[in-house]
Design a protein around this nucleic acid. Structure first.
Length: 308
DNA sequence: CGTGGATATTTACCTGTGAG
DNA sequence: CTCACAGGTAAATATCCACG
């Protein structure tokens, strides 16, 4: 069938040859004489398709880029490198994960997701499906996408299994805050103090900011809901949470009123950092009903003089 | 410690581009 | 023409800093 049509084409070309210039006639006869593709050449194409351009392959084999392209697509029935089975583009992965494609392209570029650039002028990322699956099934990477939103049915199934085995979740700071009915700032504060264990993504979450001034925090559900983590609320201070227990505040008052300690000393006695002395003062003032702003300045200055 | 404010990042789009 | 990506943008909001 195929040989029939091609010989037809040749016959047509030859019949038209009379109307052609000599140069064209030469080209036609040259094409007919193209040597047959050897198994070694076929293998070379299979090995290098996507790694080299058609032109580069042609140069190696002494054939034209068009000749190479026609051979792998028509004769060898190979798919284009970005459409080959088991190969995904950054765009494909973005669709599967339901995230912006910029992210995937960036994560491939920085080596977070294993992949490579396709040969040619376009920056098309080729990622082996297996490598992507391996990446997507690591629970540590679930801070980069929502595993429950994965569209690909096979991957979604595998993720489901992994999620059940893990038995945990990544929570954003607002989610932790909502759970405890406190402000997000309260959560980030405790993270900064080391009272809540949390992680930040190593790579730009949005895929557009390689050098970040700050990053999101993620907390495991198990960590966010641990019994030892409690936020204390005070009446009359809306939207305001504290970490000091009643007994801790009682100690602050006692240490200052009865022991004559300054705020820094009290903070140290509570195993807090020196810079947290201001907070000790805050709660001392609140407890004693002293105005927070004005009284503080006066008190802080005088105390410094007294201790020195 | 607690918080207001400044600043940066993410999100979620849309549009442009150029190779094939 | 299509596809895959690059670049833009506005709005929302998380984080960090500095100071009380």
């Amino acid at each position: 069938m195929r040989s029939g049509t091609s010989s037809l084409m040749i016959a047509r070309l030859i019949s038209n040859a009379g109307k052609m210039h000599n140069a064209n006639l030469k080209a036609v006869s040259k094409r007919i004489k193209q040597p047959k593709w050897t198994p070694a050449e076929d293998q070379f194409i299979k090995d290098n398709l996507g790694y080299l351009t058609d032109e580069e392959i042609g140069k190696k084999l002494g054939r034209t880029a068009v000749g190479v392209h026609v051979h792998w697509s028509r004769d060898l029935h190979l798919k284009g490198p970005s459409k080959a089975p088991g190969i995904l583009t950054a765009h494909d992965i973005a669709k599967i994960l339901q995230v912006d494609a910029h992210k995937i392209a960036h994560w491939v570029d920085v080596g977070f997701i294993k992949g490579r650039l396709m040969a040619g002028g376009r920056k098309i990322r080729l990622i082996k499906e297996k490598d992507f699956y391996k990446w997507a099934l690591q629970t540590n990477n679930w801070i980069y996408f929502d595993p429950s939103k994965v569209g690909d049915s096979e991957l979604a199934h595998l993720i489901n299994i992994r999620a059940k085995l893990w038995g945990d979740e990544w929570w954003s700071t607002p989610k932790v805050a909502k759970y405890h009915r406190v402000n997000t700032k309260d959560v980030t504060r405790l993270i900064a103090d080391g009272r809540i264990r949390a992680v930040q993504p190593k790579w730009s979450l949005g895929g557009r900011h390689p050098n970040q001034a700050w990053k999101y925090w993620f907390v495991k559900k198990s960590e966010a809901t641990k019994p030892s983590l409690k936020f204390y609320h005070r009446k009359g201070v809306p939207g305001h949470s504290r970490i000091f227990t009643d007994s801790a505040i009682a100690w602050i008052v006692k240490a200052i009123d009865e022991k004559g300690m300054n705020f820094t000393e009290v903070a140290r006695s509570m195993k807090l950092k020196d810079k947290q002395a201001g907070s000790v003062r805050n709660w001392y003032c609140r407890t004693k009903g002293i105005d927070l702003s004005t009284k503080f300045k006066y008190r802080g200055k005088r105390r410094k003089k007294v201790t020195k």
